[in-house]
Each structure stands twice: as C-alpha cells, then as structure tokens.
Amino acid sequence: MAYTLNVNGQALNADVDGDTPLLWTLRDTLGIVGPKFGCGVAACGACTVHIDGQPMRSCQIPTASVGAAKIATIEGMATHPVGKKVQAAWMELDVAQCGYCQPGQIMSATALLAKTPKPNDAQIEAAMSGNICRCATYVRIRAAIKHASGQKVEV
C-alpha cells in the first residue's frame, strides 16, 4: 500500500505493507539509513526518531499508524535548533567509538534538551537509559549533553 510520510519536512512516498515497522520503511524503502537496527524489540534505542517531537522507537511503529505525523530522523538534525547543538557537542567531545548507537543517542538527547534545557544527571539518566551503547561511551554521552546545554563538564 502507498503511504505518504512527512520525513524531515519532506513528503515521501513509500509503497509498503502497513505493518512494516517505520524503521524498515525508512531504511530499506526510503534509503534513510541514519536510524539503526539494534534489537527490533524496543530495548536498545538505536532506531530512535522523533514523531511530532517525541522520541520513539521506530522499530515498534507500524508504518500505517504514522499518518500525517511529522517524522524527524538524525538526517534532519542539522537544521533542528537543538539537534544541531547536540551534534556539535558530540563532535567536540568525540563521543563515538563505533558510532552505531549515536544517531539514536543524539535523537534522545535532542528530545530531552528541547524539553529540559539544563538537565541534571538524574534527568539525563531517565531520558537516556533506553539507549544502549555497546561500546559504553556513557561518560562522554553525559558530558556532551551537559556541554550542549551550556553546563560545565569534566570528561
């Protein structure tokens, strides 16, 4: 079935079965590969996108259920007022090791900072605990979120 999805401000057409998780529609049908596949069961956060600004696990969202909601992926963060700051902080601190989880981490961090501009440790942990980093770059993730929000950091 043909769906029109609003991805990063663009209307894109995808002809997929309605039960196809948004993750696979984005990756395989639309070629938007920033959202990553890590578990398929909402346990790792690698596939995190924003749906109307809310961080969601795209591996759990049937394409048919998205409707006209605004989807934002990591590819759209360069023009997102908070997202681009988060990306800059991630680069400055060179958070990544393998980098595979980082699109998901950045999407979760951006959603956090959009709501809570100066989060404390507990708020960071609550917002980020759904995102696994297998390389365990957690020390820098915490630092980069603080840095992006203009708070002092030690790495």
Binding site: G34, P35, D94, A96, G99, Q102, P103
Partner: peptide
Amino acid sequence: PQYDTARIVTGQPLFGI
C-alpha cells in the same frame, strides 16, 4: 576527533548495514 565523527553524528551511511 575520529575522522568519521561528522558522518557519524549526521547519520551518513558508513556501516555494513
């Protein structure tokens, strides 16, 4: 910083997948 860092944080295709 890692050479690929900008590509990583912007979600560019880099990985096998």
